[in-house]
């Protein structure tokens, strides 16, 4: 038995379902880490590792001050004067990040780390290592890296490079997107 009108209707419906399926969010969480302060970056990594543990595919985009949290060292050679000044003034690693309030030249950040340790809270570096284990994808924004003159060798190993297209490519398929 075949009814051409019915078959046509089914084909149209199938096309519609396939179209809708491509618009349903995936089990995916995308974060922009714009801030370069210990407390804010910590919040980003708590959410990111929690989401990854809960079965979400997590992407973290590091841009502007957020790049300082994924640095492993500071290089000066081959940089322009302004880039050298930037490198000198910026925190050279996650361990040197200030806090967003009551920093007092780094005393506040040291105190917060001590208080977290006393309360058995994982350190930022612990969470970063766990994030790597859990398969979190980390992308450094090429535009802000170029502006500040940050080289590949200054960043964590295994970081991807990308821009707004890479971010939106992930964010548009995500259930949750945060800008921290």
């Amino acid at each position: 038995m075949s009814d051409p009108a019915l078959e046509e209707k089914i084909a149209a419906l199938e096309k519609k379902v396939a179209d809708l399926e491509s618009r349903v969010p995936e089990d995916r969480v995308t974060l922009v880490v714009f801030s370069g302060e210990l407390d804010r970056v910590l919040a980003a990594f708590v959410i990111a590792t929690g989401a990854a543990a809960m079965g979400q595919q997590v992407s973290m985009f590091f841009t502007f001050w957020g790049i300082n949290s994924v640095r492993r060292r500071t290089l000066y050679s081959g940089k322009r004067l302004t880039e050298k000044m930037m490198a000198f003034m910026a925190p050279g690693s996650s361990r040197k990040l200030p806090v967003s309030q009551m920093n007092y030249f780094g005393i506040g950040a040291k105190m917060l780390r001590g208080m977290m340790k006393n309360n058995n809270v994982a350190s930022l570096e612990d969470l970063m290592a766990l994030g790597k284990e859990l398969g979190i994808r980390m992308i450094a924004c090429t535009m802000s890296r170029d502006v500040m003159g940050i080289r590949d060798a200054e960043l964590f190993e295994g970081m991807d490079a990308g821009g707004v297209g890479a971010f939106l490519g992930d964010a548009l398929r995500s259930r949750v997107t945060l800008f921290i």
Partner: peptide, 13 residues
């Protein structure tokens, strides 16, 4: 025991 957020979830995973 003694673990703070988010560690219980990470370890459970």
């Amino acid at each position: 025991r003694g673990m703070a957020c988010p560690m219980p979830i990470l370890k459970a995973r």
